[in-house]
């Protein structure tokens, strides 16, 4: 089947990246495997959506995987246990991430993150990479939820202003 060969290629080239996304957000291998399965089914049945996107194919695929994994953690019922698990696994240090990064676009966003206050940049990274919610970030940084909301909204606008500069 021709379609199937195309799918096999797509899977071979992208599954490791998308699995990395699911693992980092879900922090549970079994759940990440289930999520990856759902993500590829979604991609294959919703590929027409790509028409309206300016994203590169791989960024589009990563966005689908990220959003799916985040929807899954939000649907979990035991938030307290989850926060503990996230604290154990989350690595707030920028070192390994920055090291894994290559290419101008990534350098640029890290440079722009550096323009933010340190804890706010860490909150932006934690939210993006680990899918942490306002509630979780507020608890971790020990600030009221609305303060966290204001922090991140301002940070996002500053970030965009820097990226568009």
């Amino acid at each position: 089947m021709k379609d199937r060969a195309a799918f096999d290629l797509l899977y071979r080239q992208t599954s490791a990246k998308l699995f990395g996304v699911c693992l980092r957000v879900l922090k549970d291998r079994g759940e990440a495997e289930e999520a990856l399965q759902e993500v590829f089914v979604k991609i294959w049945t919703k590929a027409d959506r790509f028409a309206v996107s300016d994203l590169s194919p791989i960024s589009w695929l990563v966005a689908i995987a990220r959003n799916h994994a985040i929807d899954r953690i939000r649907a979990r019922r035991e938030p307290a246990a989850y926060i503990d698990a996230a604290l154990e696994v989350a690595d707030p240090a920028p070192g390994p991430e920055a090291a894994a990064v290559a290419g101008g676009e990534s350098e640029r966003i890290y440079r722009c993150l550096d323009e933010l206050e340190k804890d706010r940049a860490a909150a932006v990274r934690g939210a993006y990479l680990d899918g942490e919610s306002y509630a979780e970030l507020a608890a971790r940084h020990d600030v009221p939820l609305n303060t966290m909301r204001t922090w991140l909204r301002r940070s996002l606008l500053k970030l965009r202003e820097c990226l568009e500069r």
Binding site: V21, E33, A63, G103, S106
Partner: peptide, 26 residues
């Protein structure tokens, strides 16, 4: 979409991890 494009370079930090073959089979 515009925000995805702005923030997507951060996704470079996700490491690649080979999923087990059972995922592809499923």
């Amino acid at each position: 979409d515009a925000w995805e494009a702005h923030l997507s370079p951060m996704a470079g930090a996700y490491p690649e991890t080979e999923p087990p073959i059972r995922v592809k089979e499923a």
